[in-house]
Amino acid sequence: MFDYTFQWRSAMRALPDMLAGALVTFETAALSMFFGVVIALALTVMRETRNPWLRGIGNTWVSIARNTPSLFQIYILYFGLGSMGLHVSSWVALLAGITFNNAGYLAENFRGGLKAVPETQVRAARSLGMSAFQTYRMIVVPQLLRIVFYPLTNQMVWAVLMTSLGVIVGLNNDLTGVTQDYNVKTFRTFEYFAMAAVLYYLIAKAIVAVARLLAWRLFRY
């Protein structure tokens, strides 16, 4: 017969530390998205250029990021670089791994978004006397943002969830790391990981809610 008593007191004592870990989790995911977007834009330009070397680098990055596990990418950055004498912290390895992954997926989203903007609109804008910069700023980019906005939101949620992989390289101040520390000390696995799951869920739902509000404000017309 199922017989288990949930230890609310133990769980509540850990809540402040877990909330602090949740903040680290969100900050890491947000930074990975910022750097990921910047790199993804560069990769998108590289993949559209006529230079075969730049196009090859861009395509290779996207292919590796999209077709290998994030766990392996983080392992290589932490243990692989360490074996070659280049030691990075657990947090840096996690951030770099998630950024690498984000950039690959976002570059493909941006590329698809650019393809979805009709070329005739670009030609029409140029025929009206707009410069290339004005065309992209006023015609292409607004439509591109509308197309990739929700994929960006999904990738942000995915980045938050991927931060849990930091525990495999010794990160102990994010949400999963704090949860694991309490688990090791008390063996109250169900309580702590159930609370961590709820916090991850709330973070994800908050991101989606904010994204919907922004979409309503930005794309009403």
Rank of each mutant, 00 (worst) to 15 (best):
Q73K: 13
I74K: 00
I76D: 03
L77V: 03
L77W: 00
Y78E: 13
F79E: 08
G80T: 08
L81N: 06
S83P: 11
G85T: 02
L86R: 11
H87T: 15
A93R: 06
L94T: 01
L94W: 04
L95N: 06
A96E: 01
A96V: 12
G97H: 01
N101I: 05
N101H: 05
N102Y: 10
N102E: 14
A103F: 14
G104S: 07
G104E: 03
Y105L: 15
Y105R: 12
L106N: 00
A107H: 04
E108A: 13
N109C: 05
F110V: 03
F110A: 05
G112L: 06
G113F: 00
K115M: 13
K115D: 14
A116G: 06
A116Y: 01
V117H: 07
T120Y: 02
T120Q: 12
T120M: 13
Q121E: 11
Q121H: 13
R123S: 06
A125M: 00
G129E: 05
G129C: 11
M130W: 04
A132Q: 09
A132E: 02
F133M: 06
T135I: 02
T135S: 10
T135N: 06
Y136M: 07
M138T: 10
I139P: 04
V140D: 02
P142F: 01
P142W: 01
P142N: 01
Q143C: 04
L144I: 08
L145D: 04
I147Q: 13
V148W: 00
V148M: 04
F149S: 08
P151V: 07
P151A: 06
T153P: 02
N154H: 08
Q155F: 08
Q155C: 11
Q155L: 10
V157Q: 12
W158I: 03
W158K: 08
L161G: 02
L161P: 00
M162H: 06
M162D: 13
T163M: 01
S164W: 10
S164P: 01
S164L: 02
